[in-house]
């Protein structure tokens, strides 16, 4: 047994004629305008409750904070000075020269270092404001799915990962299984409003309370051939949706294009099949290190270590059995 993580190939085949090609998001943060339409369209379609304390969070224009049980698309706002921008450009340049697979085909990456068509690398701005819409990664090797004891989480025919709220018992095992901190158990009770008077009027019942919740990739739209709500609404097409192969391809093209313009800070996240989760179903074009956007730099599916642990456990168990056997033998002699 090579891995205890799910065999996505076989999962796909299990759907037989229903099986579709694997779907993915490509979120191009270089054209994100931070409008948060994705957050709202997601909430509206999925009837997710309003989040938070209705107070300024202290994080630029971000007031929802992070992905969670009720917020399945989250837009981060990052304000950076010139120093930070230069570092981002330099770190991206290093990725290019290392020929890292996450930054596109080497041929194009090589061209990025120098300017083409007389295009000089842009002057480093004194300031920039990064915006990026985060979402569940729908990993190739999905930790949440691997650890779910009830079969509530499953791999859909689109290669996405979804919770079946009618099966989930709210055990929360998946929460620890996600290397991105995406999936979360939805609190019971009603959503708090800022003041008492608002509580009465705007109080909102929580659907699926007590179960694990995260982006469904709008499974209920996919089955009807529709685009997920966030991608459908995105004004600038920063969120693109399609077959994963096509998304990876356009992501690589876009990053090469930006490199040609001298924007070596551009890099891909989630497109590398050799990363700790086997690549993701949500690919991002970032303009700085992943940590800057609140993304783990090197996510690893926890179950990836299971085979090794399993072997050790088997060894240990064998040892134990042997010891027990020995003791029996020895004891029998007594």
């Amino acid at each position: 047994m090579e891995s205890l993580t799910e065999d996505t190939q076989r999962s796909a085949e299990a759907y037989a004629e229903r099986a579709g090609s694997r779907k993915a998001f490509f979120t191009d943060t270089s054209i994100c305008i931070g409008c948060k339409a994705c957050e709202v369209a997601c909430k509206e379609w999925n009837r997710n409750p309003q989040d938070g304390d209705l107070e300024v969070l202290g994080s630029s224009y971000d007031n929802t904070g992070a992905l969670g049980a009720n917020t399945w698309r989250h837009v981060a706002f990052v304000e950076q000075d010139q120093d930070r921008i230069e570092k981002a450009r330099e770190s991206g340049r290093k990725l290019v020269s290392l020929g890292m697979p996450r930054v596109g085909p080497p041929a194009q990456a090589g061209a990025a270092a120098g300017a083409q068509d007389g295009t000089a690398p842009p002057d480093t701005a004194e300031f920039r404001w990064l915006m990026s819409s985060d979402v569940c990664k729908h990993c190739t090797h999905a930790g949440c799915l691997d650890v779910c004891p009830t079969g509530a989480l499953f791999r859909t025919e689109y290669g996405t990962v979804k919770v079946q709220e009618d099966i989930c018992n709210g055990c929360g095992t998946c929460v620890g299984g996600c290397p991105f901190g995406v999936i979360e158990r939805r609190d019971e009770g009603i959503i708090r409003a800022k003041t008492e008077r608002a509580q009465s009027k705007y109080a909102q019942e929580i659907p699926n309370e007590g179960t694990a919740n995260k982006c469904t990739f709008c499974y209920d739209r996919l089955v009807d051939g529709q685009t997920p709500a966030c991608a459908q609404t995105c004004p600038t097409t920063s969120i693109k949706f399609g077959d994963r192969e096509d998304m990876v391809e356009s992501a690589r093209q876009r990053v090469a294009e930006l490199h040609q313009q001298g924007m070596t800070e551009a890099r891909l996240y989630g497109a590398n099949p050799n990363d700790g989760v086997g690549g993701t179903g949500s690919i991002f074009l970032l303009l700085d290190e992943p940590e800057v956007y609140g993304l783990p730099p090197d996510p690893r599916v926890p179950t990836k270590d299971l085979p090794r642990m399993y072997q050790r456990a088997v060894l240990a168990a064998g040892g134990m059995l042997a010891a027990v056997g020995v003791s029996f033998v020895l004891g029998g002699r007594r």
């Binding site: 957050e39 709202v40 509206e44 309003q50 989040d51 209705l54 107070e55 007031n63 959503i191 909102q204």
Partner: peptide, 12 residues
């Protein structure tokens, strides 16, 4: 509207 109010909750 709760969905919009939560996105920019306070005067700044």
């Amino acid at each position: 509207l709760p969905y919009l109010a939560e996105l920019q909750p306070e005067m700044f």
